[in-house]
């Protein structure tokens, strides 16, 4: 396998190895916290931070980590940035911390973070691991924001971006089901299907123009 460029390590996490829509991992917070765009954004920020630092830590220590106990070592290395995120959020964004609650702490056992540590950071240099963590984290953040936006718009009729509410009045009767867990599953399933079809068609088109 030939090595990618650093930029390539970043961009592969966005579409090609997208955590939610391609690998379908880390679905627990994906379903639980995506009732609005803002929730999705902050959860995404937390994961980008944790994933980047945990990847770097794991990569730095990869040569001295005994193989047999690598998973416990990963968990401790992941827990460090998670605690930082948790404390910072509790101090500066108490309202958001109330909403995300346990799911911030649960990033410790998030399978995206552990999967990137095991599959990538454990075998690559710290710089590569950092770019990989940023890329996969950013991809995950986009996924959460996308699902959150769809669910918020259909479930409340409006979309809150920063301090703006768009449109100011719901254009249609909000569908309360979209804010409940079934709505999360439906949104995730439909988006996954639509995006994968779009990716496939784009890939087919690219292959045609190359040949």
């Amino acid at each position: 396998m030939n090595k990618r460029s650093l930029i390539g390590e970043f961009t592969k996490g966005l579409i090609e190895e997208n955590a939610t829509f391609k690998a379908a991992i880390g679905l627990c917070p994906t379903l639980a916290v995506t009732t609005s765009l803002v929730n999705g954004f902050w959860m995404g920020v937390a994961v980008v931070f944790v994933l980047t630092f945990s990847n770097v830590f794991v990569s730095i220590l990869r040569k001295v980590t005994p193989d047999q106990i690598r998973i416990p070592v990963f968990v401790i290395l992941i827990a460090t940035p998670v605690v930082i995120v948790e404390l910072v959020m509790r101090a500066y964004l108490p309202a958001m911390y109330q909403i995300l609650g346990i799911f911030v702490s649960l990033i410790v056992v998030n399978c995206i973070v552990i999967a990137r540590a095991e599959a990538f950071a454990y075998k690559n240099s710290p710089l590569r691991a950092a770019f990989d963590g940023l890329g996969v984290g950013a991809g995950f953040m986009i996924d959460l924001m996308l699902i959150g936006a769809v669910r918020e718009f259909l479930g409340t009729g409006t979309l809150t971006v920063g301090s703006m509410v768009l449109p100011s009045k719901p254009l249609f009767e909000p569908m309360s089901v979209m804010l409940t867990p079934p709505g999360g599953f439906i949104t995730l399933g439909v988006l996954m299907a639509v995006l994968n079809i779009a990716f496939q068609r784009a890939a087919a088109k690219r292959a045609k123009t190359v040949s």
Binding site: E173, M175, S176, V177, M178, T180, P182, G183
Partner: peptide
């Protein structure tokens, strides 16, 4: 079932 969950009032 979907519309019942989406717009229970209606």
């Amino acid at each position: 079932a979907f519309v019942l969950a989406a717009w229970p009032l209606h």
